Each structure stands twice: as structure tokens, then as C-alpha cells.
Computed example of a mutant assay.
Amino acid sequence: MNSYRELKVWQSAIELAVHCYKATEEFPKGELYGLTAQLRRAAGSVAANIAEGHGRESTANFIQFLRISQGSLKELETHLIIAQRVGMLKHPRFHDLMDRSDEIGKMLRALIRSLQEKL
């Protein structure tokens, strides 16, 4: 693989971030520096860590960044749950974002396992 942009998991993470940005456009303006910012940062971090890890010189480093990406994904899910529980994120959109997150989590785990087998 020549580029992280060819990775399906990275492409899906980018799409998730875009959907999160769109969802937070409807959040109260008073949350711009609160939950909105945290959710957007966590969403962008998932794809960013995949890309950064791919650029490292070793498979072990790549795996470490994929694990960091998993952590960002769990942080994102936590912010989504909070947003849903306080009424800022309605059920259909919440479930769509959580489903996308679950799928990315599965892809990350599969990629990590695949890379570990090559070590």
C-alpha cells in the first residue's frame, strides 16, 4: 500500500468525521467550545492517527498509532452518547454515527491483527 488514502478504514474515518461536523452544525452555539469542539476533534483524530501511523517507518509504530486511533474512536463515541443524552443529537443521526463508529472499530481491529501477524 503506497498511501494511507488507499486504506478503506481511513476513508471511512474521514466520512465519519464529515458526518460528525455536519451533525454538530445543529448544536447550540453556546456549545461551540464545549461538546462541539470535543466531538469534532475526536472525529478528526481517528483518521489523522491512521495517516500519521502509516507514515512511520515501522509496522510496530503503525500499530501503535492504530491503537491511538481506537482510543480516539472511543472518545468520539462517548461524546456522541453525551450529546444524545442531553438532547443535542437525535436518535436517527446518533444511531447512524454510532453504527459508522462500530464499523470503523472492526476495521481497525482487523488491520491491527493483520499487521501483528507480519511482525
Results as ranks from 00 to 15, higher is better:
M1Q: 11
N2H: 10
N2Q: 11
S3E: 13
R5D: 11
R5G: 02
L7M: 14
K8P: 03
V9K: 04
W10I: 00
Q11P: 03
Q11F: 08
A13F: 06
E15V: 03
L16E: 13
A17Q: 12
V18S: 08
H19E: 15
C20Y: 03
T24W: 01
F27A: 06
P28Q: 13
P28I: 09
K29C: 03
G30M: 12
E31K: 14
E31S: 12
Y33G: 05
G34V: 07
L35N: 12
L35S: 07
L35R: 15
A37E: 08
A37N: 11
R40V: 08
A42S: 14
A42K: 01
A43T: 10
G44D: 12
V46F: 02
A47S: 12
A47E: 09
E52M: 00
G53C: 08
G53K: 05
G53M: 10
R56T: 13
S58K: 13
T59C: 00
T59K: 15
N61S: 14
N61K: 11
F62H: 13
I63L: 07
I63F: 10
Q64K: 10
Q64P: 02
F65R: 01
L66P: 07
R67W: 05
R67G: 15
R67T: 06
I68Y: 12
S69A: 11
S69P: 02
Q70H: 00
Q70W: 01
G71N: 02
G71Y: 01
L73Q: 00
E75T: 05
E77V: 13
H79W: 01
Q84D: 03
M88I: 03
L89I: 00
K90C: 09
H91G: 04
R93Q: 15
F94G: 09
H95E: 15
D96K: 15
M98I: 15
D99V: 03
E103N: 12
I104T: 11
G105N: 03
K106L: 09
K106A: 13
K106C: 01
K106V: 09
M107Q: 15
M107D: 15
L111V: 03
I112Y: 12
I112A: 07
R113L: 10
K118M: 10
